[in-house]
């Protein structure tokens, strides 16, 4: 009974808020008499979502796989770049400022460029997702590899550790929590990157991702369907973030470090 009560206490308020918002939304649309293609009623969105459920699901799977591929690529590449930065002061000094600078380049600006280089299709979407999610990994892991506790470094020095031993047994393991934190940030970004990429590239009408669906439905003024596509994108983002949080928690627990 107690757990039920606690569950209700946790879920109750947000559910109440959701229901109230939906009622207000519906009332506002009906009372103001605004055009449906500008603002659909909640029921319309639900109707559209049910009608196009299979297309939406397929689109989410497609977008999700592109985001996942991009994320994996960025984790791998980002770790390698961070490793290079940590090993060479010269590299770090000359290139790290640009790594931070590049982080601020808007993905919407690069997306068309990437598409003209790699063509429309899955590869471009993966590249865009990877580019946008690369920098959190680079900055976090570089910080982690360099921010080794001074006394731990002294400990390794006292026991005559070689540079290689210090790297493998101290610096890399110490950077794992930083990698996890970076990957968690990148995770959400990769979904955004994939959707933005698809808005420009798409895969053609036969097999659209969520981004392409958003672009198409917007073009055809199917606003209820557009809302459903946005909702599906949000859910995909939530799914990514939840899985990443779970994975991060598991890894950090295995690493026996406090979760930050």
């Amino acid at each position: 009974m107690k757990t039920v009560a606690r569950y209700a206490a946790a879920v109750g308020p947000p559910i109440t808020f959701l229901v109230l918002t939906l009622i207000l939304w519906d009332a506002a649309v009906v009372l103001t008499g605004v055009e449906r293609y500008l603002m659909p009623r909640p029921a319309d969105v639900w109707q559209a979502a049910r009608e196009h459920a299979l297309t939406l699901l397929r689109a989410a799977v497609l977008t999700g796989s592109a985001a996942l591929c991009g994320l994996c690529a960025s984790i791998l590449l980002g770790t390698i770049v961070a490793f290079a930065f940590s090993q060479s002061r010269w590299l770090r000094r000359s290139m790290y400022p640009y790594a931070i600078f590049l982080q601020t380049v808007p993905i919407v600006g690069i997306a068309p460029l990437v598409i003209s280089w790699f063509g429309t299709g899955f590869a471009s979407i993966v590249v865009i997702a990877a580019v946008i999610s690369l920098f959190p990994v680079v900055t976090n892991v570089t910080t982690g590899l360099l921010a080794v506790d001074r006394t731990l470094a002294e400990l390794f020095a006292v026991y005559n550790a070689t540079r290689r031993q210090t790297l493998l047994k101290l610096r890399l393991p110490a950077a794992v929590p930083y990698l996890v934190a970076g990957a968690k940030t990148s995770c959400g970004l990769s979904v955004i990157g994939a959707i933005v990429g698809e808005m420009f590239a798409g895969y053609g009408a036969a097999m659209p991702g969520l981004g392409a669906l958003i672009a198409q439905t917007h073009g055809r003024l199917e606003t209820a369907y557009l809302f459903a596509a946005i909702l599906a994108s949000t859910l995909l983002g939530v799914l990514f973030f939840s899985v990443a949080s779970l994975a991060a928690g598991t890894i950090l627990a295995r690493w026996h470090v406090e979760t930050r």
């Binding site: 006394t151 002294e154 400990l155 006292v158 047994k169 393991p173 690493w255 026996h256 470090v257």
Partner: peptide, 14 residues
């Protein structure tokens, strides 16, 4: 053979 004990335990958490 030299050993050092620091102010903190300086154990590797992993």
């Amino acid at each position: 053979r030299v050993s050092f004990v620091f102010q903190d335990a300086t154990l590797l958490p992993w």
